[in-house]
Amino acid sequence: MNDKSARSGCVPTAELLPELALGILGGTERADVLAHLDRCAACRDESAAWAATVDALPTVLADQEPPSGFEARTLERLRADRDRVPRRSTVQRVLMLAAVVAAVIIASVAAIRIIDARSDTSSSTALASARMVGNGGKHAGNAFMTSGSEHYVFVDVDYGVKTGIYRVESVDSSDRVTALGMVAVTAGHGAWAGELPGRATVGTPRMVRLVEPGGEVLCVAKFGRAAA
Protein backbone atom coordinates (compact mmCIF):
# COMPACT_ATOMS: atom_id res chain seq x y z
CA MET A 1 0.00 0.00 0.00
CA ASN A 2 1.55 3.29 -1.07
CA ASP A 3 1.32 6.63 0.75
CA LYS A 4 -1.29 8.04 -1.58
CA SER A 5 -3.72 5.19 -1.09
CA ALA A 6 -3.05 5.22 2.65
CA ARG A 7 -3.85 8.94 2.85
CA SER A 8 -7.05 8.45 0.91
CA GLY A 9 -8.52 6.76 3.95
CA CYS A 10 -7.29 9.27 6.51
CA VAL A 11 -10.33 11.54 6.46
CA PRO A 12 -12.99 8.90 7.13
CA THR A 13 -10.68 7.21 9.61
CA ALA A 14 -10.10 10.44 11.53
CA GLU A 15 -13.85 10.83 11.96
CA LEU A 16 -14.05 7.47 13.71
CA LEU A 17 -10.90 7.50 15.85
CA PRO A 18 -12.63 9.00 18.93
CA GLU A 19 -15.15 6.16 18.91
CA LEU A 20 -12.36 3.62 18.44
CA ALA A 21 -10.49 5.06 21.43
CA LEU A 22 -13.64 4.96 23.52
CA GLY A 23 -14.01 1.27 22.65
CA ILE A 24 -17.49 1.71 21.18
CA LEU A 25 -16.75 1.27 17.47
CA GLY A 26 -17.91 -1.99 15.99
CA GLY A 27 -18.75 -3.84 12.81
CA THR A 28 -17.44 -2.84 9.43
CA GLU A 29 -16.47 0.65 10.63
CA ARG A 30 -14.07 -0.83 13.17
CA ALA A 31 -12.66 -3.24 10.58
CA ASP A 32 -12.16 -0.42 8.07
CA VAL A 33 -10.43 1.80 10.62
CA LEU A 34 -8.13 -0.99 11.80
CA ALA A 35 -7.24 -1.87 8.22
CA HIS A 36 -6.33 1.75 7.55
CA LEU A 37 -4.30 2.07 10.75
CA ASP A 38 -2.31 -0.97 9.73
CA ARG A 39 -0.87 0.97 6.80
CA CYS A 40 -0.92 4.60 8.00
CA ALA A 41 1.59 5.68 10.64
CA ALA A 42 0.14 9.20 10.87
CA CYS A 43 -3.29 7.87 11.77
CA ARG A 44 -1.73 5.46 14.29
CA ASP A 45 -0.18 8.45 16.04
CA GLU A 46 -3.52 10.20 15.95
CA SER A 47 -5.16 7.10 17.40
CA ALA A 48 -2.65 7.07 20.26
CA ALA A 49 -3.46 10.71 21.03
CA TRP A 50 -7.16 9.91 21.25
CA ALA A 51 -6.38 6.95 23.51
CA ALA A 52 -4.51 9.29 25.85
CA THR A 53 -7.56 11.54 26.02
CA VAL A 54 -9.78 8.61 26.93
CA ASP A 55 -7.28 7.40 29.55
CA ALA A 56 -7.52 10.77 31.30
CA LEU A 57 -11.32 10.75 31.53
CA PRO A 58 -11.78 8.57 34.67
CA THR A 59 -9.73 11.06 36.69
CA VAL A 60 -12.67 13.47 36.65
CA LEU A 61 -14.93 11.13 38.62
CA ALA A 62 -15.22 12.06 42.27
CA ASP A 63 -13.78 10.03 45.11
CA GLN A 64 -16.07 8.00 47.31
CA GLU A 65 -15.35 6.34 50.61
CA PRO A 66 -15.62 2.57 50.12
CA PRO A 67 -17.67 0.42 52.53
CA SER A 68 -16.26 -0.35 55.95
CA GLY A 69 -13.67 -3.12 55.79
CA PHE A 70 -12.96 -2.66 52.08
CA GLU A 71 -9.24 -2.14 52.56
CA ALA A 72 -8.86 -5.25 54.72
CA ARG A 73 -10.89 -7.37 52.31
CA THR A 74 -8.89 -6.13 49.34
CA LEU A 75 -5.56 -6.84 51.03
CA GLU A 76 -6.79 -10.30 51.94
CA ARG A 77 -7.71 -10.95 48.32
CA LEU A 78 -4.30 -9.78 47.18
CA ARG A 79 -2.62 -12.06 49.71
CA ALA A 80 -4.80 -14.97 48.66
CA ASP A 81 -4.04 -14.39 44.99
CA ARG A 82 -0.34 -14.20 45.69
CA ASP A 83 -0.55 -17.44 47.59
CA ARG A 84 -2.12 -18.98 44.48
CA VAL A 85 -5.39 -19.67 46.24
CA PRO A 86 -7.91 -20.26 43.44
CA ARG A 87 -10.38 -17.52 44.34
CA ARG A 88 -12.14 -15.51 41.68
CA SER A 89 -14.40 -12.50 42.04
CA THR A 90 -17.87 -12.19 40.65
CA VAL A 91 -16.60 -9.77 38.03
CA GLN A 92 -13.76 -12.06 37.03
CA ARG A 93 -16.11 -15.03 36.77
CA VAL A 94 -18.51 -13.03 34.62
CA LEU A 95 -15.70 -11.80 32.36
CA MET A 96 -14.26 -15.29 32.01
CA LEU A 97 -17.71 -16.63 31.26
CA ALA A 98 -18.13 -13.99 28.56
CA ALA A 99 -14.83 -15.02 26.97
CA VAL A 100 -15.79 -18.68 27.05
CA VAL A 101 -19.27 -17.94 25.69
CA ALA A 102 -17.73 -15.99 22.82
CA ALA A 103 -15.35 -18.83 22.12
CA VAL A 104 -18.12 -21.42 22.32
CA ILE A 105 -20.20 -19.39 19.87
CA ILE A 106 -17.27 -19.50 17.49
CA ALA A 107 -16.94 -23.21 18.08
CA SER A 108 -20.65 -23.72 17.49
CA VAL A 109 -20.48 -21.92 14.19
CA ALA A 110 -17.58 -24.12 13.21
CA ALA A 111 -19.41 -27.25 14.26
CA ILE A 112 -22.52 -26.29 12.35
CA ARG A 113 -20.50 -25.59 9.24
CA ILE A 114 -18.71 -28.89 9.55
CA ILE A 115 -21.96 -30.77 9.99
CA ASP A 116 -23.55 -28.92 7.09
CA ALA A 117 -20.62 -29.57 4.80
CA ARG A 118 -19.97 -33.18 5.76
CA SER A 119 -23.13 -34.72 7.05
CA ASP A 120 -21.70 -38.16 6.31
CA THR A 121 -18.72 -37.76 8.61
CA SER A 122 -18.29 -37.75 12.37
CA SER A 123 -16.09 -34.70 12.38
CA SER A 124 -16.16 -33.00 15.78
CA THR A 125 -15.03 -29.67 17.11
CA ALA A 126 -13.32 -29.00 20.42
CA LEU A 127 -12.06 -25.87 22.07
CA ALA A 128 -8.49 -25.23 23.18
CA SER A 129 -7.25 -22.28 25.15
CA ALA A 130 -3.78 -20.90 25.80
CA ARG A 131 -2.32 -18.04 27.79
CA MET A 132 -0.81 -15.24 25.75
CA VAL A 133 2.66 -14.58 27.14
CA GLY A 134 4.79 -11.52 26.46
CA ASN A 135 8.36 -10.56 27.21
CA GLY A 136 9.62 -11.88 30.51
CA GLY A 137 6.77 -14.35 30.72
CA LYS A 138 4.21 -11.64 31.49
CA HIS A 139 0.61 -12.68 31.08
CA ALA A 140 -0.91 -10.65 28.25
CA GLY A 141 -4.29 -12.31 27.74
CA ASN A 142 -5.82 -15.52 26.46
CA ALA A 143 -6.41 -17.13 23.09
CA PHE A 144 -9.04 -19.71 22.22
CA MET A 145 -9.09 -21.91 19.13
CA THR A 146 -11.47 -24.51 17.84
CA SER A 147 -10.00 -27.72 16.54
CA GLY A 148 -11.19 -29.84 13.63
CA SER A 149 -11.11 -29.25 9.93
CA GLU A 150 -11.81 -25.55 10.39
CA HIS A 151 -10.24 -23.24 12.93
CA TYR A 152 -11.77 -20.23 14.60
CA VAL A 153 -9.67 -18.05 16.86
CA PHE A 154 -10.67 -15.73 19.68
CA VAL A 155 -8.01 -13.49 21.20
CA ASP A 156 -8.68 -11.59 24.43
CA VAL A 157 -5.91 -9.13 25.27
CA ASP A 158 -5.58 -7.96 28.81
CA TYR A 159 -3.70 -5.30 30.71
CA GLY A 160 -0.20 -6.42 29.93
CA VAL A 161 -0.32 -4.87 26.45
CA LYS A 162 0.19 -1.20 25.71
CA THR A 163 -2.25 0.82 23.62
CA GLY A 164 -1.83 0.28 19.91
CA ILE A 165 -2.88 -1.59 16.80
CA TYR A 166 -1.46 -5.08 16.43
CA ARG A 167 -1.50 -7.75 13.78
CA VAL A 168 -2.93 -11.14 14.79
CA GLU A 169 -0.93 -13.97 13.21
CA SER A 170 -1.04 -17.74 13.29
CA VAL A 171 2.05 -19.91 12.93
CA ASP A 172 1.59 -23.51 11.84
CA SER A 173 3.75 -26.55 12.48
CA SER A 174 5.79 -25.73 9.38
CA ASP A 175 6.45 -22.24 10.70
CA ARG A 176 4.26 -20.74 8.03
CA VAL A 177 2.94 -17.38 9.20
CA THR A 178 -0.55 -16.20 8.28
CA ALA A 179 -1.91 -12.74 9.03
CA LEU A 180 -5.41 -13.16 10.46
CA GLY A 181 -6.45 -9.58 11.16
CA MET A 182 -5.86 -6.55 13.33
CA VAL A 183 -6.71 -5.93 16.96
CA ALA A 184 -6.89 -2.51 18.60
CA VAL A 185 -5.77 -2.42 22.22
CA THR A 186 -7.02 0.58 24.14
CA ALA A 187 -6.10 1.06 27.79
CA GLY A 188 -4.81 -2.48 27.82
CA HIS A 189 -7.99 -4.08 26.58
CA GLY A 190 -8.90 -5.52 23.20
CA ALA A 191 -10.39 -8.58 21.53
CA TRP A 192 -10.40 -10.17 18.11
CA ALA A 193 -12.28 -13.14 16.68
CA GLY A 194 -12.19 -14.68 13.26
CA GLU A 195 -11.77 -17.69 11.07
CA LEU A 196 -8.49 -19.09 9.83
CA PRO A 197 -8.14 -19.64 6.12
CA GLY A 198 -8.70 -23.20 4.90
CA ARG A 199 -6.18 -25.95 5.32
CA ALA A 200 -5.21 -25.67 1.69
CA THR A 201 -3.29 -22.54 2.60
CA VAL A 202 -2.72 -22.84 6.33
CA GLY A 203 -1.68 -25.83 8.41
CA THR A 204 -2.83 -26.52 11.95
CA PRO A 205 -1.78 -23.51 14.00
CA ARG A 206 0.63 -24.23 16.80
CA MET A 207 0.60 -20.65 18.03
CA VAL A 208 -1.23 -17.36 17.72
CA ARG A 209 0.64 -14.15 18.31
CA LEU A 210 0.32 -10.38 18.30
CA VAL A 211 2.83 -8.45 16.23
CA GLU A 212 3.62 -4.75 16.40
CA PRO A 213 3.52 -2.66 13.19
CA GLY A 214 7.32 -2.74 13.13
CA GLY A 215 7.30 -6.55 13.10
CA GLU A 216 8.26 -7.19 16.71
CA VAL A 217 6.35 -10.07 18.31
CA LEU A 218 4.53 -8.74 21.36
CA CYS A 219 3.06 -11.88 22.87
CA VAL A 220 2.43 -15.50 21.94
CA ALA A 221 -0.17 -18.15 22.77
CA LYS A 222 1.11 -21.67 22.17
CA PHE A 223 -1.37 -24.47 21.63
CA GLY A 224 -0.63 -28.05 22.46
CA ARG A 225 -1.39 -31.19 20.45
CA ALA A 226 -4.97 -31.15 21.66
CA ALA A 227 -5.67 -28.18 19.43
CA ALA A 228 -4.59 -30.03 16.33
Binding site: P66, S89, H139, Y159, G160
Partner: peptide
Protein backbone atom coordinates in the same frame (compact mmCIF):
# COMPACT_ATOMS: atom_id res chain seq x y z
CA UNK B 1 -21.66 -4.68 46.03
CA UNK B 2 -20.71 -4.71 42.36
CA UNK B 3 -18.61 -1.60 42.85
CA UNK B 4 -16.62 -3.27 45.62
CA UNK B 5 -16.01 -6.28 43.42
CA UNK B 6 -14.89 -4.03 40.56
CA UNK B 7 -12.63 -2.06 42.89
CA UNK B 8 -11.04 -5.17 44.39
CA UNK B 9 -10.54 -6.61 40.93
CA UNK B 10 -8.88 -3.35 39.89
CA UNK B 11 -6.25 -3.71 42.62
CA UNK B 12 -5.69 -7.34 41.68
CA UNK B 13 -5.17 -6.36 38.05
CA UNK B 14 -2.83 -3.57 39.11
CA UNK B 15 -0.69 -6.05 40.98
CA UNK B 16 -0.75 -8.56 38.12
CA UNK B 17 0.00 -5.92 35.47
CA UNK B 18 2.26 -3.57 37.43
CA UNK B 19 5.27 -4.41 35.28
CA UNK B 20 3.38 -3.28 32.17
Amino acid sequence: RLAEDVAQETFLRAWQRAEA
